[in-house]
């Protein structure tokens, strides 16, 4: 199934590459990328549906509400790196990459 690699999706993938092992919060990604929630969450959902992104709940801080966390899985990281190192791929993102 094809993953729509819009410029916004590439920006999100790029954000995860800054510290690949760290979990990230939705609002923090939104602030870092400048994407609104209505744009960001569909991207995160699609990445998770394609098994490129894993999610978890952060319940570590007592007294604070739990937060959803996001991190790229190895396949997602590979894709993000491929697209980052290859501007040509980035330009033709949607056509160039498809999953299984």
């Amino acid at each position: 199934m094809k993953l729509r690699l819009s410029p916004q999706t590439l920006v999100v993938l790029d954000t995860f590459l800054d510290s690949p092992q760290d979990w990230k919060y939705g609002y923090d990604i939104s602030r870092n990328t400048g994407l609104k929630s209505g744009t960001l969450y569909p991207i995160l959902m699609r990445l998770a549906d394609r098994k490129l992104l894993e999610t978890s709940w952060d319940t570590s801080e007592s007294g604070k509400p739990p937060r959803h966390l996001y991190r790229l899985v190895p396949d997602g990281l590979r894709l993000a790196r491929e697209l980052r190192v290859s501007p040509a791929t980035r330009r033709n993102g949607a056509a160039a990459w498809s999953e299984g």
Partner: peptide, 28 residues
């Protein structure tokens, strides 16, 4: 996902920003 968006709302400082966040999340 909807629960995640609701919880995230509590970490947004501005009230109007929270409202726009919620509207975007609803469409998502």
């Amino acid at each position: 996902w909807a629960s995640a968006m609701l919880e995230e709302l509590q970490f947004i400082e501005g009230d109007w920003e929270a409202l726009f966040w919620a509207l975007g999340c609803t469409t998502a």
